[in-house]
């Protein structure tokens, strides 16, 4: 343990790298919780973020699941949005131009219903100006095809990653679910086929019931659990994968403040994504970045990369 000292005007470096992609700090929103950036732009300075991760985009627009779509649970929330999105064409025409005005790297989250759709989306997104990296969602709990069904088996993850890799030169991030028997195997499969980074984890399949009506509270019957309730599960997933994978990891799941974010770095994440916390505090991302910086100063740590994988066993 380092002693707490005052290090004067030392400005710690928060820079991290996800493969070729350099970030000014490791903090970014989780896909689906930050819209297309514009929704939060009057509340938070987008230029301060490590990256902006968009709402998941698919080839064709998607209506999503019937409402109700959200429900609060003990220390968390369920969502059953069902990847409701404007589709790739409108994204390129109406959403991306706004995002390009910020100097922050844009990571486009995307998904498909077949492996070919993943490949086609990756190819078309790569042609768009201003896209810094792609994050493939192989883990959404809310759609019948695609999503989590692609992330369940190492073979499917390998095949999908391989097809995406062939379709783009951009850095590829593969977002995985913790709902698998061995997450290390799945992560290694993605890494083996050219993933530049791996995001862990997506929301966890879950449900809630209304006792009076005996009906599920969500229109989609089941949903995905997110928020502080899932942080310990996400931490363990990152820790496990970090023991095997060589590519950088992005920790996602229940991060509410800078402490949570740094815990993910300690177990091996290079960067973090913040989701549900944005709903609770629209300035959460910024407060986490400032909190990390203050922590590093307080501890006299000059470079944030010292934190990565520093777990003491």
């Amino acid at each position: 343990m380092r002693p707490e000292r005052y290090y004067g005007e030392m400005m710690p470096s928060l820079k991290v790298k996800l493969g070729e992609l350099e970030l000014q700090n490791p903090v970014m929103p989780a896909a689906g919780t930050f819209g297309y950036g514009e929704e939060y732009s009057s509340l938070i300075e987008l230029n301060r973020l490590g990256a902006i991760v968009t709402k998941g985009v698919s080839l064709a627009p998607q209506e999503g699941n019937p409402p109700p779509r959200i429900w609060e649970t003990w220390g968390g929330m369920l969502n059953s949005i069902g990847l409701h999105n404007v589709g790739l064409e409108i994204f390129a025409k109406e959403k991306l131009p706004f995002l390009r005005r910020s100097k922050t790297p844009i990571i486009v989250n995307f998904f498909g219903h077949t492996i070919d759709e993943y490949a086609e989306s990756a190819r078309r997104l790569s042609d768009l100006e201003g896209v810094a990296a792609l994050e493939a969602n192989l883990s959404c709990p809310n759609i019948k095809e695609g999503g989590i069904h692609f992330g369940g088996k190492p073979q499917t993850v390998a095949k999908t990653t391989k097809m995406i890799r062939r379709s783009t030169k951009l850095p590829i991030i593969i977002k995985l679910s913790s709902n698998v028997s061995d997450i290390k195997e799945v992560a290694i499969a993605a890494e083996g086929e050219g993933a530049d980074a791996i995001s862990l984890i997506n929301s966890i399949p879950a449900m809630a019931i209304d006792l009076e009506t005996r009906k599920p509270v969500l229109g989609g019957i089941t949903g995905g659990l997110s928020g502080p309730a899932i942080k310990p599960i996400a931490l363990k997933a990152v820790w496990e994968v970090a023991s095997k994978a060589k590519v950088p990891l992005i920790g996602v799941g229940g991060i509410m403040d800078y402490r949570d974010a740094l815990e993910f770095l300690i177990v091996g994440a290079t960067a973090v994504q913040v989701g549900t916390a944005n709903f609770i505090n629209p300035k959460a991302l910024l407060e986490i970045i400032e909190g990390i910086e203050a922590f590093l100063k307080r501890k006299g740590i000059e470079d944030i990369t010292e934190m990565i994988g520093s777990l003491e066993l």
Partner: peptide, 17 residues
């Protein structure tokens, strides 16, 4: 009136048909 999470149009949780 609907249940909401973000309130600013980002999460798509409060939609009405």
């Amino acid at each position: 009136e609907r249940r909401m999470a973000c309130g600013v149009g980002a999460c798509l949780g409060c939609v009405v048909e």
